Simulated scan of single mutants.
Amino acid sequence: MTRRIMLTSFLLVTVTVVLVPFYWLIVGSTRSTEEVFGSPPPLLPGAHLLDNLAKLESTIGFSRVVLNSALIATIYTLLAGLVCTMAGYGFAKHAFRGKEALFGLLMLGLVIPGQVTLVPLFKMMLSLDWLNTYQAIILPNLALPFGIFLMRQSMSALPDELLSAGRVDGCGELRLFVRVVLPPMRPALAALGIYLFLYQWNDFVWPLIALRTREAYTIPLAIAALQGANETDYGQILAGTAVAAIPMAILFLLLQRHFVSGLLAGAVKE
C-alpha cells in the first residue's frame, strides 16, 4: 500500500510539472503583455485571445504561416515516410554486399550533430538556387536516420516465410512491398508519421537559414520574428505558440497508442 501511494504521488507530481507550463501557455495566450507580467500573475484565462490572434494576423499573416507549416510538414511526412520505409525494408529483408557497413555508416547520423551539416547544406541549396523554396526545407532530411532505423527494426520482426509465400504467388517486389509488407507495419508507420510530422513542424534552425522572406516563414520562424529589440508583445507570442502547440498535443494524445506500439514493434524477437 505504501509503495502504491508513493508511486501515485510521484506520478501526480510529474504530471503537474508537465501540465503547468501548458496551462500557463493557455492562460498567457488570453492575456495582454501587461497582464502576463502582472503581480500576482493571472491564474485564469482572460479576454484578449481574439485581440492577440488579430494582432498576429496583421503583424505576420499568421494564417499564411500556419498554412506554410502544415503544407511543408504534410509533404515532408509523406515523402520521408516513403523513403524511410523503403530503406528500412531494404536493410531488413534484402541481402547485398556491404549492407552492415552501410547501415552502420547511416547510423552515424544519429550521433553527429545536425549543425555540422548546415554550411555544406547551405552551399548545396545555394548552388541549386533552391533557397527560400519549399524543396530546400523538405528534401534534405528525407532519409532521416532514426526513421530508417525504426522501420528496419520493425520489419526485422516480419517473418521471412510471409515474403517467400508472396513471391511464390507471383508478387513482384513493388506489389510485395505494398500488399504484404506494409499492412502489418501500420503501428510502426503511425509512429513514424507522428515523429516525422512533429520533427518538421517544430524545426527552426534549418528553415531560419534557408528561408529569406516572411511570406515563406514557418510557425517557429514567425514566432521568433515577433521578438523585437525594444518591445515584445508576449501576448501575441503566447497565442501563436498555443496555436502551434495545442493541435500537435491533441494529435499525439489521439494517436499515442499507435505511437507507443509502433516504437515497441520489433523490440522483442520471438
Rank of each mutant, 00 (worst) to 15 (best):
L196S: 00
A188C: 02
I194F: 10
L189W: 00
A188N: 01
L189C: 06
A191V: 14
L208Q: 11
Y217K: 11
F204D: 09
L211E: 04
F197V: 12
T218V: 15
E215N: 10
E215W: 01
Y199F: 15
Y217D: 12
A191K: 06
I194Q: 02
V205L: 11
A190V: 15
A191R: 08
Y195R: 06
Y217H: 14
R212F: 04
Q200P: 06
Y195K: 07
I194A: 04
A216S: 13
A216T: 14
L189N: 04
Y217S: 14
A190D: 03
R214G: 11
V205W: 07
I209N: 03
I209G: 05
A191D: 06
Q200F: 07
I194H: 04
F204R: 07
N202A: 04
T218Y: 09
Y195H: 13
E215C: 06
N202V: 01
P207M: 03
R214T: 15
W201P: 01
I219C: 08
A216W: 00
G193H: 04
N202Y: 02
R212M: 07
L208Y: 14
L198Q: 13
V205N: 08
I219T: 09
I209E: 02
L198K: 13
T213N: 10
Q200H: 09
Y199E: 14
L192D: 01
L208N: 09
E215Y: 02
L192G: 01
A190R: 00
A190Q: 05
T218N: 11
I194Y: 05
L198G: 08
G193V: 13
I209H: 00
W201Q: 05
V205Q: 07
T218L: 15
T218I: 15
L192K: 00
G193L: 03
Y199L: 14
D203A: 10
Y195S: 07
R212C: 05
W206Y: 14
L198Y: 12
I209Y: 03
R214A: 14
A216N: 15
F204K: 10
L189T: 13
L211V: 15
L192Y: 03
Y199I: 10
L196H: 03
A188S: 06
I209S: 04
W206A: 10
A188T: 12
Y217L: 12
L208T: 12
A188Q: 03
T213S: 15
A191M: 07
E215P: 00
L189Q: 05
Y195F: 15
L208R: 09
A188K: 00
I219F: 10
F204P: 08
A191G: 13
Y217E: 09
A188P: 05
L189S: 01
T213P: 01
Y195I: 13
R212A: 14
I209W: 01
A188H: 03
A191Y: 09
V205H: 08
T218E: 08
Y199M: 14
Y199H: 13
R214C: 05
Q200K: 12
